[in-house]
């Protein structure tokens, strides 16, 4: 199968190396040096230039280079019949869960407070633990793993998703029960896919529906959060603080207000990053499946947006 890698601004070499290590004879063309577009049958993409996929008349498969596919689904020129798949990688899930657990524990055991106390030589033994009940919005592969690990650690948890689920292992709420969900928890983790239904979901109305002093962890997409609303919600006491890994504009501009917010901890979109070596086997498996007309792994439902 002839493959094109299209990831402007990203280094494709680790991907080429990983692909070749599994399949030495794979024909790989890399954007923008694609000289034989008619030969391309599959594309690996990350933030591809919109419209470019129409250059490949024999394209049979579009594969995201990460778990997210919002960067693909915002390209209206991709023909409806073309299957889209994404990466579901245990390593990526492990990293994401560790990050969220870190955020929850940091809030629960207030490590930031003790770091400040140390600097000021303050010995304050009051209220060493903040009681925590964690709500995870988005209960796919990532969200479910977070729920399981936090549950194992003894935290009370609840999940929220956009579709009804039967026999879910944890207390589960649908989007119609959002207010009820928010009243049950005091740490909210956003792991939702970015769709038209979830964009800007973390706005002032959302924050006002939370229990007073709720802590926010956003590790999904920057566009879930209305950033000005978060600052206002913290100033007005609806939200006690936040741990953010994703932003509407990345890298975060130097003059962004988040840099100077004492109650907001920011990390530079490092919660979990796709590992090419871990991702390649499922990509190659999907190439094989599409050639043999078999059901694809980790298919994306365009209607749902994930």
């Amino acid at each position: 199968m002839n493959l094109a890698i299209i990831c402007p601004g990203k280094n494709p070499e680790p991907w080429i190396e990983a692909l070749k290590s599994y399949q030495e004879d794979l024909d790989i063309q890399v954007y923008p040096e694609i000289t034989e577009p008619e030969k391309v049958e599959a594309v690996l993409v990350w933030q591809h230039p919109k419209g470019i996929l129409s250059d490949f008349p024999n394209l049979k498969l579009v594969s995201s280079m990460g778990a997210g596919v919002d960067h693909i689904l915002t390209d209206p020129s991709i023909p409806a019949h073309l299957p889209i798949v994404r990466i579901v990688d245990d390593r990526l899930t492990w990293s994401m869960t560790n990050y969220v657990v870190m955020g929850v524990l940091n809030y629960h055991r207030q490590i930031t407070r003790y770091q400040k106390d140390q600097k000021r030589k303050v010995w304050d033994m009051s209220n060493p633990e903040i009681p925590v009940k964690v709500g995870v919005m988005g209960v796919g592969a990532l969200g479910y793993d977070v729920l399981e690990k936090l549950d194992f650690m003894g935290f009370e948890v609840a999940g929220l998703g956009f579709t009804a689920k039967e026999n879910f292992k944890f207390p589960y709420y649908t989007k119609e029960q959002l207010n009820e969900f928010l009243q049950e928890i005091n740490v909210v983790v956003c792991l939702l896919p970015l769709t038209k239904d979830t964009e800007n979901i973390l706005d002032m109305e959302f924050f006002k529906s939370c229990q007073k002093g709720t802590y926010l962890i956003n590790v999904a997409r920057g566009k879930h959060l209305v950033e000005e609303d978060l600052i206002n919600a913290i100033n007005e006491g609806y939200i006690s603080g936040a741990l953010l890994d994703v932003y509407r504009k990345e890298p975060l501009p130097k003059n962004h207000l988040f840099w100077d917010q004492e109650k907001i901890t920011i990390t530079p979109h490092i919660a979990s990053v796709t590992n090419p070596k871990a991702a390649v086997p499922q990509i190659l498996e999907n190439f094989s499946r599409v050639k043999n007309n078999h059901e694809l792994l980790n298919s994306v439902d365009r209607e749902k947006g994930y």
Partner: peptide, 15 residues
């Protein structure tokens, strides 16, 4: 690439 720049797409972590 310029069209993408205009549309506000930034180079984002692969995740």
């Amino acid at each position: 690439e310029f069209s993408n720049h205009l549309s506000g797409e930034e180079s984002r972590t692969m995740d």
